[in-house]
Design a protein around this nucleic acid. Structure first.
Lengths: 198, 198, 198, 198
DNA sequence: CAATAATCGAGACGGTACGTCGCGTCTTGGG
DNA sequence: CCCAAGACGCGACGTACCGTCTCGATTATTG
């Protein structure tokens, strides 16, 4: 018989999945408490009830640990219901807006915008695995809108996507006040209707 | 003899203006090289040819030094020419887009988005002195557009401002490619016309 | 079928004698290479081609392993031939002198002199099983000399034994040069004749 | 004016002599408490009220620290009074015997005999700075005895020195009982008179 | 012959000390 | 009173070894 995943069972004691998860959880909490690099690996190990070696056996350095911690947060975007482009955009914008206020997710943007050169691989991987999927999902809704005729045929999908996500994420950076109800809808509507007279 | 500012010359050797400027320059370069808190005060002092005490005599901690360094970058926003709302918005968006690509300014956004909890006073001050003036300038142009009838009377100025700045700043975070020419214009136009059919 | 020793065979796989010997050999080599507690159990196990558990199943800790390793070195003292006290003492002194140069045995004295508090049981056992027998053998030769009249009747056996063994072992600690030929004889003769004029 | 030693005063804050001494003291105590390499640098620094960097700024590793700590113990041998070779030898033997019982000095012999390969430079330096001077002092007394006719003209000075020091140091290794009064004298007398009949 | 049980090599586990590095402060001699 | 230089106490970093534990596989005795 094989090990759990059917792979040929390397010799030696297998790595503890409990430890792995405990470390990631402790890291996520620490990020929320102390900020991206206020995290101290010693504390993470201690709070996870784990030796430092167990941590460094899996992730060679702080950066790799942070990559993994963020990856474990993978908040699934809502799947577009597909009835109305407007409604789908609003739903996704709400998720983004909510995430931007959650300190844990707020840290993700910190990564994206701020720690790029300190943790370059973290940035690259985060963009690839988190940012791009979200952007692509929004693009796909926009493209669908063009196809169905809900959106103008000359819509610049990329520009629209940036305006939508940018507006949501730019709001209240550093603010602790939650987004006003209806905020996401107002952004989407402004973008749909345009603001120019006529 | 008086000191530079004409104030009544305290006893003792006056502070060296050379040192002050060298420290700020070194800090700005270090920010560009290593990121907001990849900066190490020891390196800054060494690169400025200055003792650490000379640095800490002026700024009590890293955060204060960073505040001063960013302040010294103060890039003036272009004054709106006032002829066309569209043209004024494009001009300002271009400045924002260019700044977002300059690694030195990019660090400013890092601050805004990422280091808020590590350097709270830096964030607050940066928002107050840099972000808000820019936002207010854009708001004023939008309000003018409503007044002149160039923009719809029911325009949500705040939302429009966020969509504009957000789109420009969200583009290509971490990218090194410069914005395509015409990018700022396309953002402004998308926002003006809206993307909904009809 | 019975196990090797004819005892009533416990259930389960019997312990590998190969492993046991390989561990002891590796330990002795490691002691020679790195010193008494420069030995690292992980290296011993690896060099013996054995898992760490196999080692710790036999010896509960490093100290026990060291005890066993030293015991396996048990170099028998030459039996005194009994013809001449002088010749017997020289023979024994030569063995001591030779042993003092052998790095493996040199480590034994390290134990005696240096690691007593770190490995107290090792020290106690080593003294009991190695040092005392040697000393006692020398004492017995000296006592025989007093009885036969070869040595002065007021000889202080303990003092003479200490002077003899001490001289031999004190020579060239840390030296790599072998004892000059005749060294042991010269020590014994100096002790026999005394150095005072007349 | 110059710094303490008259040397040309390097720039920067001078190293604290207090810290240096506190570290050495803490090390000596730790050696006495825990043994040569039971010493933990972190504890030494803590007990000395000093940061680890301050310790490592002076001594690159544990070994160097131990070298310095032992050097600071430099117990001066009594100067021979020069009246009687026998009395001088006894005086020196008494100092050696006393030192051999002092746990702090006992550690020195541990070094000499046991840790040679783990701390080779420590051993070399210790031999050069502590052992050799002592041996040389004893040799000089012996040579004086030969010259004055107190000792036999064919005395093997080296052998006699080894017998004397070896006997004193071999006694009761690991024992906690103090040397019996008169022990040193008995060793010296045995060596002077010889133990052979006639 | 099957079941049971202790062994094997391998290597992960929780701890703890190591030696390094950066922070913000302090202390020199010399303008 | 300032300057450059650099030592100070502190505390996190990432490494290495201890003695324990957990795998799948092997090798004996026992039912």
């Amino acid at each position: 018989m094989r090990t759990e995943a059917g792979r040929p069972g390397r010799p030696g004691r297998p790595r503890s999945e409990r430890a792995e998860q405990a470390i990631l959880d402790a890291t996520v909490h620490a990020i929320g408490d102390c900020g991206v690099d206020g995290v101290r690996c010693e504390d993470v190990a201690a709070r996870a009830g784990v030796g430092k070696a167990t941590l460094y056996r899996r992730w060679a350095c702080k950066e790799d640990l942070l990559i993994a911690a963020f990856a474990s947060l993978a908040a699934p975007l809502p799947q577009p219901r597909g009835e109305s482009v407007r409604e789908d955009l609003i739903a996704m914008a709400e998720v983004l807006a909510e995430g931007a206020m959650d300190p844990r997710y707020a840290r993700q943007f910190a990564l994206l915008h701020g720690e790029g050169e300190r943790y370059p691989r973290l940035l690259a991987r985060y963009k690839e695995q988190v940012i791009e999927p979200r952007r692509e999902l929004i693009r796909s809704v926009l493209r669908r809108g063009v196809a169905t005729g809900e959106l103008r045929p000359d819509t610049d999908v990329e520009i629209a996507m940036l305006a939508l996500t940018g507006a949501v994420m730019a709001r209240g950076k550093g603010d602790t006040t939650p987004a006003a109800p209806g905020f996401a809808a107002r952004v989407v509507d402004a973008l749909l209707r345009g603001i120019a007279a006529r």
